[in-house]
Design a protein around this nucleic acid. Sequence first.
DNA 1: TTATAATGTAATCGA
DNA 2: TCGATTACATTATT
Lengths: 239, 239
Amino acid sequence: MSSKKGLKRSALENGILKQSRRSDSFHSVFVLATDTKRRQRRRRTAFTDEQLDRLEEAFENEKFPGIQIREDLSRELNIKEDRIQVWFQNRRARWRKHELKNKPVTGLPVSQKSFPACDFYSPNILQPPPAVFPPLPSVSFTSWEPMYAPFTTKQVLSLKRDFELPHSHTTDSQATQANNAVIHPLETSSASHGPSPTASKDILYQASSFYDSDSGESHHSAEDYSAAVTLVSCFQRET
Amino acid sequence: MSSKKGLKRSALENGILKQSRRSDSFHSVFVLATDTKRRQRRRRTAFTDEQLDRLEEAFENEKFPGIQIREDLSRELNIKEDRIQVWFQNRRARWRKHELKNKPVTGLPVSQKSFPACDFYSPNILQPPPAVFPPLPSVSFTSWEPMYAPFTTKQVLSLKRDFELPHSHTTDSQATQANNAVIHPLETSSASHGPSPTASKDILYQASSFYDSDSGESHHSAEDYSAAVTLVSCFQRET
DNA sequence: TTATAATGTAATCGA
DNA sequence: TCGATTACATTATT
């Protein structure tokens, strides 16, 4: 049983800040840019049980909440919106680092999977790579950017190059199959509030780091493949 | 009974915690490879005397070693790099907690102290503020950035403004004296590997929060002063 | 008990 | 936004 002092204090101060309008003695502690007080690093926020529960719940529903959701949470939990945003950033980092890589879906080869129209968030989209990689569908890269540009052209071209050069040993039928299976137009579901641009970057990260968790082996082509497939499957084809 | 969960989460093993929410999705996340067994804490590393000596030596030279230095140490001492990093984190914590607090030289006004050329790390550089604050030397801010920019121009200007506005009651002689005493050009010692940008940030943080530790009193101007002096003393003057 | 290695996570910066 | 890194609070080991 070691010291709870620090915790208690944080919790207390935090509670004061959030529930009552903060008392004078702690006022400047939490407000970064008051007139005279300059604190280079903000005091660590201690979320309450209830707040964390609610945040986790929100995180399950939406990994990348837009400003609307964040504002709602902010009001509901009486936490400043920027803290909400930071919380989600860190929560996603944790998600990527731990939880994602431990939820592998051993399943069908990519060519036989049906992809959701644009499931940015489901880990299920990550596939173990097939033995032979279907080539990437021929999507015009320039057509991606106008929608939203989660990657620079350079990044995308690099990805495409990495994929195309080493493993160009696929058959035409495979290619066709993959084309049909992988590519879906963006569906209407994302009409209301489509995933934010960076969401798909996150997916790429998922894909590319997915097979790193256990061994130091070289799955580079598998990585690239998964990344590319995932990426491509989330973008609308040029029409 | 407000914020126990944060503690509880830390206290309990990670594997158990997340089950409560959306079990089917997160369950496998933490159970992972060690199915029936909780994830254990890493075995406490016991550094040898030689290793500690070397680490301490490195710590004196560089409180915030970059990846390069850490890798070198890792090879040299045959310790994994992440352990090196953790060691430095804990070492810095100890440094802040103990050594920093006990060393400050209660004494001479800043204007009479001799500052090391660019001693980012010595706690001695932190001074109890004099009753009257010498003004900051007039350093051209633009000249700082090309060297390395631990702060944005905006930040620096903000700092300067914060300092200058409230306490502008110093004499010219003091100013001159302070100028001479505080400002030193960067010495050659940092030619090979200057402190990382974040290092100086940390110093500013130290300076600005140094007097917070014990009381909630308002040392705001002292903070700003120390921060400013420390900051300025670490940058080369425009020539 | 103390010192300190290890852990979790909010905060911060650069890109 | 991410990724890396930090400070900080805490836990747990020796």
